[in-house]
């Protein structure tokens, strides 16, 4: 156990010594890995933030029933009754046309400005909450209600939310695909860098193997080097990501204020940060493991 710890400490020291000897090359390498990794993690950040923003919007689909103009009060009453008894409906809200008109004027700051229209063009409306939030069920309900004679038009309000969610789901898939592709590219890049390092140390590897070094011994310093590459690359990606985030938030602040929201991109959480850096280090380890193993395999073949 002590020996094992010792061997690792030694390999780590060798690796750090090399890092000190060629800091620029290592920095460049970290930059390349960091830039590549910042793409999928940046997209993840964006999707995550949009999801959060979308989460504030009610996902429960609702249908607005605009009634035929000037529907008599009694008809509205029977209609309300019918709706309340409908098995697919959870709850309804009646919005009289006057109220809707007032709200609209208020929202647009037009109340009492003389910009009022002479007559209220809005119809009475019901807002219907469906029992089942399944998009197909809601859609079927909307179709059914729109065929009622008292209903002029049945509008499914959740359509855009649905579309947003589908889009976010697509974004999530894209993150996975992008991470997979770039991860593979990094594996190759790191493997290749390690292969070049191996070539400069061919003699050492040959002699070591001849005088009794195990493959594990030979592999160790390269594994450390690869892992270190990955680790630095992961940290670099995190820094790139948050520098971009900072710049974005600065410029989005004014825009958000204009629209009366306080929308800003939240930084990567603690756990995703660790996952990013951990994955980068793991990629480095795997890439260098393959590089050294391939070299040793070719060396051993007679």
């Amino acid at each position: 156990m002590m020996e094992w710890l010792h061997a690792h400490r030694l390999a780590l020291l060798i690796t750090l010594k090399k890092l000190r000897a060629t800091p620029l090359a290592h920095l460049l390498m970290a930059g390349v890995i960091g830039a590549a990794l910042s793409l999928p993690s940046g997209l993840y950040l964006l999707v995550n933030n949009l999801e959060r923003a979308a989460g504030n919007v009610s996902v429960q689909p609702q249908i607005t029933l605009f009634l035929v103009q000037n529907t008599p009060q009694e008809v509205i009453h029977t209609l309300e009754h019918k709706l309340r008894k409908h098995p697919a409906i959870e709850d309804i809200n009646f919005i009289p046309r006057d109220e809707a008109w007032k709200a609209l004027l208020e929202r647009n700051g037009l109340e009492g400005t003389g910009g009022e229209l002479e007559t209220n063009p809005l119809p009475d409306a019901f807002i219907v909450h469906a029992n089942d939030t399944d998009p197909n069920a809601v859609s079927a309900l909307q179709q059914e209600l729109s065929r009622w004679p008292e209903v002029e038009f049945a509008q499914l309000d959740a359509a855009w939310v649905k579309r947003l969610h589908a889009l976010l789901q697509l974004g999530n898939k894209l993150v996975v695909v992008l991470a997979g592709l770039l991860g593979f590219a990094l594996l190759v890049i790191i493997g290749n860098t390690i292969r070049l390092q191996i070539l400069t140390q061919r003699d050492e590897i040959e002699v070591s193997a001849l005088i009794g070094a195990t493959n594990r011994f030979i592999r160790r310093p390269f594994l450390y080097a690869g892992t270190l590459h990955g680790l630095l690359g992961g940290v670099m990606a995190w820094l790139i990501l948050h520098a971009a985030l900072f710049l974005f938030n600065v410029s989005v602040k004014d825009l958000a204020q204009l629209y009366g929201t306080d929308f800003r991109l939240e930084p990567l959480g603690l756990q995703p940060s660790w996952i990013l850096i951990g994955c980068a280090a793991a990629l480095g380890w795997v890439g260098s493991y393959f590089a050294v193993s391939r070299y040793l395999f070719n060396l051993e073949r007679p």
Partner: peptide
Amino acid sequence: LPYVRRNFGLIFQDHKLLYDRNVFDNVALP
């Protein structure tokens, strides 16, 4: 096999010294 090889002290016909490190480090390798 590596453990078998450690039974031997090997002196190669072409020495196989490592020219990127000093005398002390060459001897420290085994």
